[in-house]
Amino acid sequence: MSILQDIKNAVRSRSIHVAYVDVGSCNGCDIEVLACLAPRYDIEQYGIYVHNNPREADVLLVIGSVTPQWVDKLRDIWEKIPEPKVAVAIGNCPISGCVYARRGTLTTPPVENYIPIAAQVPGCPPRPTEILSAILSVAPLIYKDYEEKQR
């Protein structure tokens, strides 16, 4: 059993599939996630693949202060991701609402209220390096020996 688990660990740490969902962001964090793909940071050299299909994702990047329209859709997306899964909040908005966390704004941060968040990357916006290292450090924590931990 442990050999199978080792293989699973090795495979999972080498291919992390990422889906990202923008729940009402100002575009700043979006473009920084996009910048991770640029040759400068080259997210794929770490075995992280970005594509926006929750059905085949492991990591969900949540961007933006949550607008009321997104609440149920975000939950649906989260439920579509197969286990094991993690959500990473990118930027201040999903963590605290940032500058939108005041009266009179039509946002309902934080995103933790709706789906469990495994890691937060603060910053407005965070640097691509910070996003990268967050994904790299949180994913193994969840995926390593996932089946063992479930028992």
Binding site: N92, I95, S96, P122, G123
Partner: peptide, 8 residues
Amino acid sequence: IYPGHCIR
């Protein structure tokens, strides 16, 4: 400083 709020 509270990092989840600070916009640097």
